[in-house]
């Protein structure tokens, strides 16, 4: 640290991550890494785009939240491979994602090639959900 002629970035210290649905909205599971732009506060939207979800959509949202937790945690583990708390949380969320994906495949449609389910029911991800799809 404090060397000349090279960039230095302090290593993030472990803090209990945010397991609420806020984490996805804020773009990080770590409070410490949330650094909004002042314009975001000035132009705070009265309504967010998350309301008025249909049943299948909120099930998908839960998967997105859990997977995001896993994605963000994995990046932390890539640079902190020995953090025991992070490794334990990873195991928990791997299990949770597996269960949610299997349940979604059963009740709605398979999200990946490794999930069993009725592919004909599948929705196109970039269409924005059933409420706005005119197929």
């Amino acid at each position: 640290m404090n060397e000349i002629a090279i960039a230095s970035i302090p290593i993030q210290k472990w803090e209990a991550p945010d397991e609420s649905e806020e984490a996805l909205v804020c773009g990080s599971i770590f409070q410490e890494l949330r650094k909004p732009f002042f314009i975001e506060e000035q132009m705070k939207s009265k309504k967010t785009c998350c309301c008025g979800r249909e049943e299948g959509e909120s099930a998908l949202r839960e998967i997105q939240q859990s997977q995001f937790f896993l994605i963000d945690l994995q990046l932390y583990l890539d640079t902190h491979p020995d953090e025991a708390d992070a490794k334990n949380l990873k195991k928990q969320y791997q299990q949770k994602c597996k269960e949610l994906m299997a349940q979604f495949a059963k009740e709605h449609y398979p999200l990946t090639i490794t999930c069993e389910g009725d592919e004909k029911k599948a929705e196109i991800p970039w269409e924005g959900g059933s409420a706005h799809v005119a197929l």
């Binding site: 997105q64 999200l111 990946t112 196109i124 991800p125 970039w126 924005g128 959900g129």
Partner: peptide, 15 residues
């Protein structure tokens, strides 16, 4: 890579 039929963050734009 395996494709997953979901966006990482939901996008629903109506306008």
């Amino acid at each position: 890579w395996l494709y997953e039929k979901a966006l990482e963050f939901p996008v629903k734009i109506t306008k």
